[in-house]
Amino acid sequence: MEKEIKAFINLWVGKRLESLNCICEMLDFCFNDNLVLHGLGLTRIFLKDDLIITTIDYNSWDQTDSKHNDEWFNTEKYKDQIIGGKVTNISISKSNDLFLELDNGVRIECFVANAYPHYAEECEQWLLFEHTEDHSGRFLTAYNKRLSFD
């Protein structure tokens, strides 16, 4: 399984980031060739070593509109500088944190954000997948303590 996972994540090298979207408390990254990253747990984006976006910044400034927060504001503010970069390096740490480096100075980090003893089952933290119309693409999902590759 480790060889298959390594081969799958190596597919991402050279792929261009085509879009970035906020979806609830998640960041959604779409790369060319229908490759997608969902950052479901703690996700951070650095631009030239400056932390510009994190999903922790989701608290509403005015407590009335859920889009009035640092995550949505900074995603819109920096989107043009983030989109267009190509993946130069992708890696998964021993604790299943995901790191992507792009050639435009962008670094995307998806961390395993919580343990699971408090929950009935593990929670998805991040997921890399091939988007296909018939849902036949491969999925690499990081849960709290394990990776699943389908």
Rank of each mutant, 00 (worst) to 15 (best):
L37E: 00
Y116H: 14
I82R: 03
I108F: 01
Y78R: 03
A7T: 13
L40N: 11
K94M: 13
N32V: 02
K145P: 00
A7L: 13
D33M: 10
F149T: 02
C22D: 13
I56L: 14
H38G: 09
W12H: 04
K79F: 03
I92S: 04
L20C: 12
F8M: 05
N144Y: 07
F29M: 00
S136H: 03
S91A: 11
F46S: 03
Q125E: 10
Y78E: 04
G39Q: 02
K3C: 01
L17Y: 09
L37W: 04
R146D: 09
L51N: 10
L20K: 04
L127M: 15
F111G: 08
E124M: 13
S95I: 11
D50S: 14
G39T: 02
A120N: 13
W72Y: 14
F31S: 05
V106A: 12
S60I: 09
N144S: 11
F73Y: 14
L127H: 06
I83K: 09
F29A: 00
N74W: 00
T54N: 14
Q125G: 01
Q63Y: 13
R107S: 15
D97A: 13
F8N: 11
E71D: 05
L27V: 04
G105N: 02
S95F: 11
S66V: 11
E109P: 05
H135M: 06
W72E: 10
H68L: 07
L17T: 06
I23Y: 15
E133P: 09
C110S: 15
D49S: 14
E2L: 10
F139E: 03
D33W: 00
H131P: 00
R138N: 06
E71A: 12
L20G: 07
D57T: 02
N144D: 12
I5M: 01
V36H: 15
D50G: 02
E18S: 08
L51R: 03
P117T: 03
E121R: 13
W61D: 14
Q125K: 09
L98I: 12
D65V: 08
E101K: 13
E124Y: 08
F29E: 05
L35S: 01
I56V: 07
I92G: 02
E71Y: 10
R44A: 08
F31T: 08
N144I: 03
E133C: 01
F149V: 11
L127N: 08
I52W: 05
G105C: 15
M26T: 11
M26L: 11
